[in-house]
Every structure is written in C-alpha cells, then in structure tokens.
Design a protein around this nucleic acid. Structure first.
Length: 478
RNA sequence: GCCCCCAUCGUCUAGUGGCCUAGGACACCUCCCUUUCACGGAGGCGACGGGGAUUCGACUUCCCCUGGGGGUACCA
C-alpha cells in the first residue's frame, strides 16, 4: 500500500512551531517511504479562520522547504461530501438528532462536576420516541447530530511511536456531536473529528502522523472509520514541543509564527534541522547537522522519542551558526543586506558589494544569527564612532597619542593592504619604543571605538577603503 | 475530579538484560589558537525520580508510588 500522509493545519492562526514540526515528521516519513505528502487546510471553524493565516501557513511551509505533493485541499470546499456522509450515518441509524439546549447541557455538566464525575453527555436523546421528537420540533428547537458511542466498547490501536494504546468507550464523553446545531430538518455544519475522518478516508491517508495532543481524538475517530465502513489508518502521535516550563509550546511563548524566526535571523534550513532533532535522533554515526533530504533517507519512527522535548534556544543558535559558518561569502552577503538595510545602515548594495563581501568574510565565522551582523558591524557603517568608556580609558594611556599620531602619519595615500598595515604597526612599535600590545589595543580603540570586535587589521582595511581610518584616528588623538 | 500518555546529564538524546566505569550534541568550566571578541581545536563538569518484583545479572522486563504532560467543547 502506498504511503500517503498529510499535514492538516487550521488557519485560525499563523503557522506555529508545533504544526511545522508535525509537518517535518510527515514530510520525512513520506520521503523515506517514497510516499505522498498532502496539505489540507482545516477551515471548518468559520468564526476563527482567516485567509491571511492560510497564506502564512502556505508561505511558512514553503520557506522551510516542506513542499507538498498534493493540495492544498480546503475543507470548506467539501461540505457536500460531509453532508452526504452524515446522511449515510443517519440512514444507518448510527447517529441521531439531539435537541438539548445549551443551558440544559450546562446544568447536566454542573451536576456531574458537583458529584465529582467526569463531564459527559448522558445520551438522553439517543432513544427519543416519535412523540418526543415531534414535541421538540414543534417547539422549534434546533438539533445537533450525535454519533453513538457504546460505553463498553474498547478501542485499541498500535501507535507508530507509542505501541499499543487503548481507551474505553465510556471515557469518550458520551455520544459525540459531529454536526453543529441547525434546524432539525437540515444538517448543521460538521465538526472537526468528523471531517478529519471523512477527508482522511477520501484522500486515502495511510498514516495519520500528528501531535500527541490529538491522542484523545483517535479512539473517537477510529469509531467513525468503522461506522463509515472504512479501513482504519495507522496512527502515530509525536511528542510535543515544550516551553521552558515544560508545558506545551503555545502562541504565548514568544513566537507566534514561523516567520518570527526569520525576523530573528534564523535560516529555514537550521529551523528544519533543529525541529527534526526535537523528538527524533539521527542514526548512529550521523552528524547532527543535516538537510531534510538527508534526514528523509534515514527517518523512521523507531527513533522517535515518546517524551516531550523542551525547546532550547542555545542549541538552535548553535545549529544556525553551523549553517552560517558553512555558507559561501556571496550567499551570506545576499542574506545579510536586508538586515543592514532594516537597521538603517547607509550603503550602496551594488557599488559597495566588494566591500560588503570583505566585511562578511571578516565577521562570518562569528555569527550565530543573521541579526548578529547588525551589531557586530555597526562600527563600520559610519565615518565616526562613539568610543566606549573602556576605549576612552585606553586612549588616555601614556604613549598612546604619540603612537597613534605616528600611525596616522604613516597611512599611505593608496589603499592599505594587510602587509602595509602590519608594516606600519611594526614601524611605530620600533620608532616610538612602545609595546606592540599597546599599539594594537590603542589602534583598535581609536579605529573601532571598542576594545573587542572582529579582526583589527581587517577592520582597519575596511575603514581605510572608506577613508574613515584617518578621520577616526585624528579624532582619537584630539 | 476523570481518562490517556510520559520519565537517562541543566537541555536534546543514545541505550531493546551482560558490550555501561551509561555514549554523543548544546550549554557551562579550563587550556590551546588569536596580543581583542568570536570561530576552531583539546580536555573537564554532569544523569538512569523512589520502592518493590523477576533474573546469576537490570538503565533496559513487570507492579506500585511520585513527578510531569496531554485531553476532558455544538474549537481545531
């Protein structure tokens, strides 16, 4: 049987990390099995679904490199199918109309709670007499459609990650609503657990791979597969991504959209790589830095962990840095330019290209995130800098003014090179009779306004190309 | 409350009864490289939640406890 898996996000919010990770696992599984990865948009919640969220989800998946083979399929386009399937169950007598008012249900639940019982529908309308039905309808009461769940049923499935999992029918909350309240002569809007099953059957989904938070839906859905006379697919419930406190990562934990990571300077490859590592471990001997393609070759549920995984920014930063450090300078430069522009730095992306690439060559190995380049190179985008207290102190030391004056005088009219810069330093050390360390440190202070930063000689070359080394040194001496 | 799931270094994990003196990665610490910082390199610190049972032998199997998480909708 061919493998057909899907990611089925609901557009009630941006693509968030949990959904993206589920998508990663589905994608990897499909890749490993030569299967088909399908995208379905679950927009049955008309109130909360928004087109911009759909767009964000589509863009986010693409950005991560999680391309889908089929779809997107929208559930709102398929209401006829759902209606037909509900009618089928109505005809089979597996579902029924329930006329309970919301207040009545609330009262029922309040009573159950008071008695310390699990809140559940008591199936009170399951066997209404024709007279009772007529009376409710005469009253004009709308009806929901409920699917019969037998208390003594036991539902067992073999989960791809958890092995055998079992539930009892009585723990499922009573007969479940599959269609919202509507006039009793019609069928209301179908609900999540029902449409998922109808769609998964219709789309031929062979493995349902989703987050562990869906585990309680599975027994209900298995019952629906049976009612609809369909083969039950294989289920796999992946561990959740947890926040620092160990609770399910939610929108409230900072990142609401996968694109927040982009804004923070992360690469999609690094995000995808890290998400794969959250709950799955690569085969023995395999490096932790890998592409989705590489992971897809070896992915299996044998190596998916059962416990939830805390999201760790340190590790993500390290992974992102690995990608950044391995990236060719021209490519990294292309990526960095928007961040410098965003920061308001003044430069000409075309004419300054060579200079920018030199800059990238200097700072590239120090980056963990693209945004790090902004602060790290701030001192190179202005003719002058504001020295730190530390730097100021260094510039006030004995012999510094003399040394820097000598350096300034030695700067040639033609462009400085690594060799000529070193020569100047050595010359000043010799002629002024000062320590090399003093010259290096002072030069750094005078040139960059700080005692720490990228390579001094390279920084000097970069400033020299702009003609700013002379002005800065002159300022430092004054 | 009830149901379900889970439990190895601070974090992500390897481990499928003897290869375990529990391995790797991140973080942290030290040293080297670098007259700065970072990168890189070499070391170091650091864990099987507790109690029973099975066994010649348990991180690995079973039970209980504890702890954590998820779910409990006319949301998805």
């Amino acid at each position: 049987m061919s493998v057909r898996v899907r990611i089925a996000p609901s557009p009630t919010g941006n693509l968030h990390i949990g959904t993206a990770r589920t998508a990663v696992f589905n994608w990897l599984y499909a890749k490993n099995n030569g299967g088909t990865f399908i995208l379905r948009i679950e927009d049955t919640d008309l109130e909360r679904s928004k087109p911009e969220f759909t767009q964000n989800i589509l863009d986010g998946l693409k950005w991560l490199g999680l391309n889908w083979d089929e779809g997107p399929v929208f559930q709102t386009d398929r209401t006829d199918l759902y209606q037909a399937k509900i009618q089928e169950l109505l005809d089979k007598g597996l579902v029924y109309r329930a006329y309970d008012l919301p207040e009545e249900l609330e009262t029922m639940r309040a009573r159950q709670k008071a008695r310390n019982e699990a809140p559940r529908y008591d199936n009170r309308h399951r066997n209404l007499t024709p007279d009772q039905i007529a009376a409710f309808e005469a009253e004009g009461r709308p009806a929901v459609i409920r699917f019969k769940i037998e208390d003594d049923r036991e539902i067992i499935w073999t989960d791809l990650v958890r092995g055998n999992v079992s539930w009892k029918g009585r723990d499922l909350g009573g007969d479940m609503v599959i269609a919202r309240a509507a006039d009793a002569s019609t069928i209301g809007a179908p609900l999540y657990n029902f449409v998922v099953v109808v769609d998964d059957i219709d789309m031929g989904i062979s493995q349902v791979i989703r987050g562990e938070d869906h585990i309680a839906n599975t027994p209900k859905q298995i019952l629906l597969y049976e009612a609809l006379g369909a083969t039950v697919p294989t289920f796999g419930h992946t561990p959740l991504i947890l926040n620092e406190k160990g609770a399910k990562l939610s929108k409230r934990d900072g990142v609401t959209s996968i694109f927040d990571f982009q804004k923070m300077g992360y690469l999609p490859e690094a995000i995808a790589n890290y998400m794969s590592l959250l709950g799955w471990s690569p085969i023995e001997g395999m490096n932790e830095i890998f592409s989705l393609e590489e992971a897809g070759k070896v992915f299996s549920f044998d190596r998916v962990n059962k416990a939830g995984a805390k999201f760790d920014w340190d590790k993500l930063n390290w992974i992102n840095g690995q990608y950044l450090h391995a990236m060719p300078v021209p490519q990294l430069t292309d990526l960095l330019i928007p961040y410098w522009q965003e920061a308001g730095y003044v430069f000409d992306a075309v004419n300054d290209r060579l200079w920018l690439e030199q800059l990238v060559a200097v700072i590239g190995a120090s980056l963990a995130k693209l945004t790090d380049a902004v602060e790290m190179s701030a001192y190179l985008f202005n003719p002058t800098v504001m020295p730190t207290d530390e730097a100021l102190k260094q510039l006030g030391l004995d012999g510094v003014t003399g040394a820097l004056t000598a350096v300034l005088a030695a700067i040639p009219a033609e462009p400085l090179t690594e060799e000529s810069a070193k020569e100047i330093i050595n010359l000043v050390v010799k002629e002024n009779g000062v320590k090399k360390g003093l010259v290096m440190k002072s030069l750094r202070a005078g040139l960059t306004g700080s005692l720490h930063g990228p390579d001094l000689i390279q920084s000097w070359l970069l400033l020299n190309a702009k003609g700013w080394d002379k002005t800065r040194l002159a300022g430092a001496i004054a």
